[in-house]
């Protein structure tokens, strides 16, 4: 447990908010300066996709909180089941349902 006082706690909240708002602000300013159909925009997009995917895979491979009570195998089974169904059916919600069900079943069986 921490030992911050009232003022210091709220200062911490302020810093956490500032640390995110800065990126949003820079993003808005930069967005109007990058040509829409150019290769730089393609690059920005692929980096955004890769970075979000990197965050999500870290959450799945090294989760904290209640998800950490499941094993890596369970989570990977859920992920690959979802991706496999998505690959063949191209239906998002159905694939999500299959992936989550596979995860739930894996927890109980394995």
């Amino acid at each position: 447990m921490n030992d911050y006082g009232f003022f210091y706690s709220w200062l911490a909240v302020f810093f956490a908010i500032l640390a995110t708002v800065i990126w949003r602000f820079i993003g808005v300013v930069m967005a109007s300066r990058i040509p829409a159909d150019g290769p730089v925009m393609v690059w920005v997009n692929t980096m955004a996709y890769a970075m979000v995917s990197a965050v999500l895979l870290l959450i799945l491979v090294r989760p904290i909180g209640v998800l950490a009570t499941t094993s890596l195998d369970h989570r990977l089974i859920g992920l690959f089941a979802g991706l496999l169904v998505m690959f063949f059916s191209k239906r998002l919600i159905f694939s999500l349902f299959c992936g989550v069900c596979a995860f739930a079943i894996a927890i109980h069986i394995i």
Partner: peptide, 25 residues
């Protein structure tokens, strides 16, 4: 420390920058 919090949160949420540009586009 507050500085550690600031840098860790900005590192974890840096993708916002790219997502905002991509969404605006």
């Amino acid at each position: 420390s507050l500085i550690a919090i600031f840098f860790a949160v900005s590192l974890a949420n840096m993708r916002m920058f790219l997502m905002v540009i991509s969404a605006a586009d």
